[in-house]
Design a protein around this nucleic acid. Sequence first.
RNA 1: GCCGAAUUAGCUCAGUUGGCCAGAGCACGUGAUUUGUAAUCUCGGGGUCGUCAGUUCGAAUCUGACAUUCGGCUCCA
Length: 649
Amino acid sequence: MVQITLPDKSIKEFPEAVDGYEIAKSISPRLAKDVLSVSVNGEVWDLTRKITKNATVKLHTWDDREGKETFWHSSAHLMAEAIEHFFPGTKFGIGPTVDTGFYYDIDLPEGKQLSEKDLQKIEQKMLELARQKNEIVRSEISKEDALNMFTTKNDELKLELISELEDGTITLYNQGNFTDLCRGPHLPNTGFIKAIKLTSIAGAYWRGDEHNKMLTRVYGVTFPKQKMLEEYLAMLEEAKKRDHRKIGKEMELFTFSEEVGQGLPLWLPKGTQLRMQLEDFLKKVQKKYGYEQVMTPHIGDVRLYKTSGHYEKYGKDSFQTIKTPAEGEEYMLKPMNCPHHCEIYKWKPKSYKDLPIRMAEFGTVYRYEMSGELHGLTRVRGFTQDDAHIFCRPDQLKDEFKKVIDIIFIIFKAIDFKDYTAQISLRDPEKPEKYIGSKENWDKAEQAIIEACEEKGLKTVTELGEAAFYGPKLDFMIKDALGRNWQLGTIQVDYNLPERFQLEYIGADDNRHRPVMIHRAPFGSMERFIAVLIEHTAGKFPLWLTPEQAVVLPISEKYNDYAKKVSNFLNISDIRTVVDERNEKIGRKIRDNELKRIPYLLIVGEKETETETVSVRRQGEGDKGSMKTSEFADFVLNEVRDQLSGLYN
RNA sequence: GCCGAAUUAGCUCAGUUGGCCAGAGCACGUGAUUUGUAAUCUCGGGGUCGUCAGUUCGAAUCUGACAUUCGGCUCCA
C-alpha cells in the first residue's frame, strides 16, 4: 500500500508502487495527457519512475517551470542524438535548460565545424527521431562502469564530470541509439516533442572558465505544439522590430561613432529632448520630496576612491588613472557619484536636525566594460545615473526608504509600466564574512526594508545572498510589452561609505553619530531606461515624453503661413510642434508623419484658415474632426496632465 | 578580453565561379504640380565596397592583420 499526498492535501492510496503517470491518470485523462514530470518529496522525478513509499507528490505540466525544464532537458538529449548522427565522435559536455529552451556544449571531432546551415538539418533529424517516440530509459550504474563507458567513448568532458560525482548516484539515460550521463529527469519518450527550433551557435568555455577549452554551444527551443513555436517566433520577430538600436536610429534619438569610441553614446537633438523631459520630470518629483540638486566634476583624485574602497576592489579593472603633466597628480574618471557626494556632506558640520539630507545629481559615470559586452544603450562605457544619496539617522531609515518607493511608483505610473516585481536582496546567513558592518546594523537595515515594502504593499521576492557587500537592497524589475524582464531602479542601504568617509552628525545628546546612506536610482541609468522605454513602447512614447508632440500639415504651400501661426501658438502653449512644409500631397505627409510616430497630426487648409481651427488626427486612430486651435491646446495639455497625475497629487 | 558571424551611398539591401565606368529603393538636391486624411511626376548629385597589407595581368569578390557591429562566454561598484 502506497499513500500519495497531493498538493491540495488530499491522499490517494495505491495497492502497490505507482508512477507519476498512473497517479495523473487516476486524477483525470486530461492531466494524464499533459503531465511531463513529477515532484516526489520535492525532488523532480521521471514520470515512469516507480514510487515505492508514501510520498508527497506534485505533477508538472508545460505550465510550470519544472515541467518545461523536463521537456527542454529531454530536448537537449534529442539534439545531442541528432548531432551524434551527423558528427560521430562528438564529445558532449553539459546540456542544461535556460529561461527559454536549452543548449548543449559540444566538442566536435577534429576538423569538423558546425555552421548555421547545419541547424536545419539537425532540426529535421530531431523531428524524425521524435516521431519514433523512442522511450527514454533511466538506469543507475556504478562510478567505475561509468568511467569505463566514457573512456571507451574517449569523452574526457564526461569523465571530468563523473570523477566529481559520488558513487551510487550516477544515472544514465538512453533513447534510441543515444546514451548520456544525466541526473534527469526526462520525458517518458521523445514523442512529446512536436516543434523544434535551433536558434543559434556560439562559443562557450568548458565550465565557463576561459582557461579551458572553447566548446561549441548550440541553443534551441522546443514545444509540445507547433502553434506555440509559431507564437514564439512571432514574438522574436516583434522583439526585433522593437529593438531600441533600430528604433533609436529611425527616430533619430542617438548614435555611436567609431571616432568617439565604442560604448559612448551620442545623444541627437530628439533623443536629448526625450531625456531632458525625463530628467525634468524626476527633478520635479524629487523637489517635492525634499531633494536638493548638486553637481560634481567628471573626475576625482584617486585618493577619493582609495578612501571609498572602490580603487582597491575595482581599480585594476576600470579605466586607468589620468595624470597631470607637471605635478603627476592622479585622477580617475568617476565610476560613481557617491564619493563626491560624501565630500559634499562633509563640507560643513551637521546636526541631527539637518538630517535627512537628500542629495541628487544626474551624474555621468564611466566604467570599463569589456568590448564584447557592449550592447546598444543597455551596456555602455559612459552613462548618466539619476543618482541620489540620502544621508539619514538610523531611526529615519525606514521612512526614507518608503519615500523612495513612492517616487519609483510615481515614475512607473507616468511611464505606464504596470507589471513590475521588486526583489529584496539580503545577506547570505551562512557567509557573514562576505559583508562589512555590524550585525546589529544589518539586522536593522534588513528589517527596515522588509517593513517598508510591507507597509507600501509591494509584491516582493526575497533573495538571500544577493545583497551588496556594504548593505541590503531593493531592486525593481519591470516586465515589458513582450513579457521580457528588465532590471531598472534600485535602492541600496549603505553603512560602509559613511564609515570610510567618517561622516558624522552631532546628536541631541551632543555626541558624534554616524549617518546611514541610501543610494537610489529610480531609472537606474538614463541610457538603459530609455532603451527599455523604447522597446516597451515600440517608440510610441507617452504624449508628455515624446520629442515631437504635434506636426502641422498644410494641404498645400498656400497654407504654410497659417500652419506656422498654429505651430507658434502651440509652442508658446508648451506643446512641442513643428510644421511639415514639404511640397508633398497631404496623403504623403500623413503617411510619413504616422511612421515617425508623431502623436498628433494637424491638417490645415482653406477651411481651417478661415475658421481658426485645425483638423486633428491621432496617431493610429485616424481623423478626429476639427476644433479651434486653442481648444486643441487645452485638450493636449489636459492629456499630459492626466498622464502625470502622480506628480500633482 | 575570448569564440563565431557580419561590414557595399545618409538608411535598408542586390552584386552570380575574380573580368565592361559597382546597382536598386528610400533619403537628399532640382524642375513641374498647389494638392483634403497612409507613398505625384521629372531630372540630378552622392560610394578610394570598414582600414591596412598581400596573392593576381586584373580584387567588392581570394588570404592575413587591425577596427567596429551582432550572437554567445566571462564580468558588472
